[in-house]
Simulated assay, not measured.
Amino acid sequence: MSDMDDFVDVTVSRGGRQVSAGCYKLPVSVGRGEHNAIRIGHDPQDKTVSRTHAIIQRDGTGLRLIDKSANGTIYRGARIKQGNSIGLGTTDHFEIFEFSVTVSKAKHDPSIPVIFEAHVLVDGYMKGKPFLIGEMMLLCFRRGKGYRFEQVPVRADFETICSNHRIDDEHAFAAIVGHRGAGHLFTQTAQNRPVILVNKQPIGETSIILHPRDVIEIQNIRIELYPPGENSLKCSNPSCQLLNPYVLTGNCRFCSFGLVGAVTRVAAATRKVQS
């Protein structure tokens, strides 16, 4: 699971004009080669910029800049030589020839509400802490015969993240995203992903709207989407076990099984703040 400490906002300018800006997962490589998260000096080709010129990486709670180039990187007027590194401030900048690179640690935006508190269960057991969906989205990766989940900011550079995972033979096949106050499930086409059930129903679309208390199932994995700050009831019918509003005297909205004796689930998050 990732948090905002794993991400940085990076703006690149040339001659006073912004040429790129984005949110990237650490470590972030900068250079002329196609493999870099941030490419500079490639159009037109400028061989004074190395294929991998510099790397920004996490250093405890801070950031560190490492030079990998033949010609060095300028930081506060001093040249950092190949293999050397220096700590960066929360917001800082460095120069690679004509390019000025500004780096800031990514921060939460408290104005973006939490849409869901997502609980991931494997074989019926909770896996890690809940994921808060709103400012952050939940990516689902397939690796070999297993699956992995990672939370990233909605504004992050999605293609770079997925490219890095493909190097590790992990492939993103679905994303749970909050957008404009609503939840969405985006997936690859059916032939490129495992069977996905939403509330026990297989989905064929590559994009569907998600609602509070929906349940997503992928083989032995279950993702329960809770409305933040509200209680829910999990149906005790073994063939159902879907989620319902907290009405003890009611019946399950899916199978009509009585909710007396149903398991209470509590979502601790609030809609207002992600921290």
Rank of each mutant, 00 (worst) to 15 (best):
M1D: 12
M1I: 11
S2T: 13
S2P: 02
V10G: 06
T11I: 11
T11K: 13
G15N: 11
R17F: 10
S20P: 03
A21M: 15
G22W: 00
C23P: 02
K25T: 04
R39I: 14
R39A: 06
G41D: 03
Q45A: 13
D46V: 03
R51F: 11
T61Q: 15
L65W: 01
I66M: 09
N71A: 08
I74Y: 06
R79C: 15
R79A: 08
K81Q: 14
G87S: 13
F94G: 00
E95P: 01
I96W: 00
I96N: 02
F97K: 05
F99I: 06
V101H: 00
S104L: 05
S104T: 15
H108F: 12
P110Q: 10
P110W: 09
E117D: 06
Y125C: 09
M126Q: 11
C140N: 01
R148H: 10
F149C: 10
R155I: 13
R155P: 07
T160Y: 04
D168L: 14
D169P: 03
A174N: 08
G181A: 11
L185P: 01
Q191T: 14
Q191V: 09
R193Q: 05
P194G: 00
Q201T: 12
P202I: 02
E205M: 05
T206N: 00
I208V: 03
I208G: 01
H211M: 09
S232F: 01
S232A: 14
S232E: 07
S236D: 09
N237A: 08
N237G: 03
L242A: 04
P245H: 08
L248I: 10
C252D: 04
F254I: 09
F257G: 03
G261E: 07
A262D: 00
V263N: 15
A269D: 00
Q274L: 11
S275E: 09
S275C: 12
